[in-house]
Amino acid sequence: MLEENGIPTVVVSTARDISAQVKAPRTVFVNHPMGNTFGRAFDHERQRTILADALRALETVREGGALIDLPYEWEREFGIFQG
């Protein structure tokens, strides 16, 4: 909605299937648990790298609806948060 109002946006998502349905103008997907989009607490390097990748998508994406898979892995299997 911001895009129609002239503001370029990038969404940083941990829910690939939901983002694929919503089709925001630009989305980067990080296969991390929700709540750790940018990584672990105090992992500055991972946090900064993911943020920089997301921001670069602002420049590189040429067509609306792009969903870019970032290459970072979480260190172990994780599931949906159960509360």
Partner: peptide, 11 residues
């Protein structure tokens, strides 16, 4: 919300 296309405002 299921969208089939998306707008894009370039930088």
């Amino acid at each position: 919300t299921i969208n089939h296309d998306a707008p894009l405002t370039p930088l």
